[in-house]
Amino acid sequence: MPDTRSTSVPGTVRARALPAGPGPTARLILLLLLAAVLVGLATAVLSLPPVAPGLGAVVTEHLPASGVEHPVTAVLLNFRGYDTLLELAVLWLALLAVWSLTPAPLAHEPTANPMLAALNQLLAPLMILVAGYLLWNGGHAPGGAFQAGAVLGATGVLLHLSGRRLPRAVDGWPLRLALLLGVALFSLIGLAVMAGGAPFLTYPPASAGGLILAIEAAATLSIAATLAALFLGGRP
């Protein structure tokens, strides 16, 4: 491929003499502003007491009632369930925006590569296993829906990159269902506990563990599907 640089798109981008950022005055003002931000934030950080209890003690105190043993999972899915629910909704909205912007680009992957196929056979089952392990771990150790969902979503990306496509049967509503499952189950359970007189998203301590695991499993599936679909970059 001789002399692509002169005819290719990036060549023109370079050659078209992009305005080289803001002018000197604007740059000076920007630097002054940022210096103020730097000094302000640094003094704020340094002026804080070097030891602060934070909310750790409160979380530890209420941990037995949360249904899980790992404080971060307890905060995510019980104490601050609203955040997590809305965060799942944000993920879903981002995907909605991506899908409404553009159809998925046609896949021009060169067809099956034997190396990649072998790699997939080794890696994909292991990654799904690790995702399940992380999901289960979330109850008592670092891990949980987000980490498991990210690993599972990365599995989807790997499979997509090596030319695997979703079968037609799963392409339509089953995919949409998987994308929605996390938000749907989360809010359903949150609403269901209100029948017993509890406020939204407060689980009864006796069944909290099981409910959290169910929500986390659904959220894992949704996060994984959303991340993989976001990588695809368009409506399939």
Binding site: L48, P49, P50, V51, A52, P53, G54, L55, G56, V59, P71, V72, A74, V75, L76, F79, R80, D83
Partner: peptide, 14 residues
């Protein structure tokens, strides 16, 4: 900045 071994879980979850 916690005195104990474990860090504050709330910002971590955020």
């Amino acid at each position: 900045r916690t005195p104990a071994a474990a860090a504050d879980p709330v910002p971590q979850a955020m």
